[in-house]
Design a protein around this nucleic acid. Structure first.
Lengths: 359, 359
DNA sequence: ATGAAAGCGCTAACAC
DNA sequence: GTGTTAGCGCTTTCAT
């Protein structure tokens, strides 16, 4: 809104937004030189305890905070770790929280850039790079390798949750054992007697493709027919896919790309009177915070997000500090977490009112 | 660390970053002055088409990218908008997404700082201030006014979702009509015949207190006895509170602090065999993405997060650009969204177990 | 132990 | 039009 009635600056009645104090101000007020103040404030040895005390006191009193831009220009160091994330995504939320913890532990500041409908990955990375982050952690980036390489430029980068081949020899990757995990899921379902197991995928980029591959491999290994329907990584996408999938079918189990997608599938099912897990079993992937809720109670894969976050953050900061080990690819173990959304396959025919299932 | 060129990084096929070219380099190579190059590259009028072309060509050839740190230092402009958020919080996620949209529309970059267990609000704000954000938007900050004032210093700030009195005459606030909204909720429940309506609060700071007040007012206005039990803003907190609340009781409706808390309450209820809404009605607040899911289907308040986000972001950027209107307090309308988690109160006694007839 | 001075890479005000 | 000249606020020798 801001009905800017008075378009003029000169008004200073309401507390003058006086300019932020500078090193010089502190130096003057403390009666010492700027250089000294700088050393004191950064705890460098040299200054005497007496002046240190005085300077600290003055700085505190004046509410001094170093201008990081200037520090950066002069020192070329920022101690900034950058991460791209999708706001509101619970899985990302957990990762960010753990990355933050590592950053704190090592004295780095974490800067986050959002990836949204209006703001693509590339721009987020640019924001981070321009803010002089010394290393980057990208959560499930989907841009092609060439773009990735170009936008991160010379900043050490590690991606989480995405396979990345030798096209990007300088970008480390941390991910979960997606392929194996999908086998765990299919195994679990198969052992419950399911044979008509569909996969709602997450699109055809990188991670989703990897999971779909795992699903296919697992199905074929058991002599079952794979059925993959296009989905996405959101609740909405899952719901849409389910709508399509269950228009016809005979499917008794759905392996969704991730938890959000699975929740969407369950949402649709529940709206159309299909019971989970009585009529249809559903599985997710990520074990995000929602999965454990009684109302959701989703069988899923826990991809050790905690480990992934720590590995990635440390790797990134190591690189920022000059570690020159060769490219790292870390694969975190994935565990099956069985909950109430999966149950034995309904017995043969007519398991529910309308539309029939089949053997 | 990582001195520019002193140590040559092992030359990968992808090309080694030699010292990043500076304005001076371009100027030399083009045979003009740095000042001119600067103008050309920023598209300022002045330079002749001829030199502009030459400079552009050289810059391109040398892969020049302005050092933003230096630009910032010199121009004292960053076009950076900062926001603090709790990663993974769906409500915050929606706000951030909308704030990002506004920032994009106005040519600002959005920087996000996380508030987590290991990283408190104060530190997040400091990170943002240090990164030279020109304005700040704080989501549901809980620090006391004095601290708030101190950490934001002279940076224009607007807080979302928190009452803030005249103690902070320079901080704008955008919030929802919490007090009224609580009345809407209680009204809704009362009109369904509920009389034993409890409130699981969100703690005793600011917003939670405001909502609790609204609840109390509404209850008393209807001659009902208020019952407030301590809760929190998370699913876990809601579940814990429910456990306590339903150990004894006779409560037929619960007004939770927010959706997350409500989901926690429902989670507990569902685990203990109490049906929602047959036995107990539950309401939330925020209308976050989960509330609409079929499995949750929560009656709640939609606080117009879209409007709040836009108002706050624009207000902040206006201030960054020097708007000097007096302190703004914007209250967004709150709408009741009725879903399936509320139903008529169970008739008279023994509402638990299977009994539950309806009016 | 302390102060002075030289930049970091860029922008902007002002001469030429 | 174009070049020159100061800084921006801080870090960092290098004298003192």
């Amino acid at each position: 809104m801001a009905d800017d009635v008075s378009r003029r600056a000169p008004d200073r009645t309401t507390g003058t937004p006086r300019r932020r104090p500078t090193l010089q101000d502190i130096a003057d007020a403390a009666g010492v030189s700027p250089g000294l103040v700088s050393m004191v404030l950064r705890g460098r040895s040299g200054p005497s305890a007496a002046t240190a005390a005085k300077v600290t006191e003055v700085a505190e009193r004046l509410g001094y905070r170093a201008n990081r831009t200037a520090s950066q220009l002069a020192s070329r160091r920022t101690h900034l770790l950058g991460v791209t994330t999708t706001p509101g995504n619970p899985y990302h939320g957990e990762l960010v929280e753990e990355i933050q913890a590592r950053a704190d532990a090592r004295g780095y500041d974490l800067l986050i850039a959002a990836v949204t409908r209006t703001h693509d990955e590339q721009r987020s990375v640019e924001t981070l790079v321009d803010s002089n982050c010394e290393a980057l952690v990208l959560l499930n980036p989907i841009m092609p390798p060439e773009t990735l390489l170009r936008v991160v430029g010379t900043v050490p980068t590690v991606v989480i949750g995405r396979p990345l081949g030798p096209e990007a020899p300088k970008i480390d990757v941390v991910r979960s054992a997606d392929h194996d995990a999908m086998e765990l899921l299919v195994d679990h379902l198969a052992s419950l007697g399911h044979t008509r197991i569909a996969h709602v995928d997450g699109g055809d980029l990188y991670l989703p493709a990897e999971r779909a591959r795992g699903y296919r491999t697992a199905m074929q290994a058991r002599g079952l027919d794979p059925l993959v329907v296009p989905g996405g990584e959101t609740v909405d996408a899952g719901a849409r896919a389910a709508k399509e999938l269950f228009a016809h079918s005979g499917i008794t189990a759905v392996v969704a790309y991730n938890d959000q997608c699975a929740i969407g599938v369950m949402d649709h099912l529940s709206r159309t009177g299909v019971r989970v897990p009585d009529d249809v079993s559903v599985t997710g992937f990520d074990d995000d915070r929602l999965a454990g809720l009684a109302q959701i109670d989703l069988t899923t894969i826990n991809p050790s997000q905690h480990d992934q976050a720590h590995l990635a953050a440390d790797l990134a900061m190591d690189r920022a500090e000059g570690a020159t080990t060769r490219r790292q690819i870390k694969v975190a173990a994935a565990h099956l977490t069985v909950r109430g959304s999966t149950a034995p396959a309904p017995v043969t025919r007519m398991p529910r009112r309308k539309g029939a299932a089949r053997a």
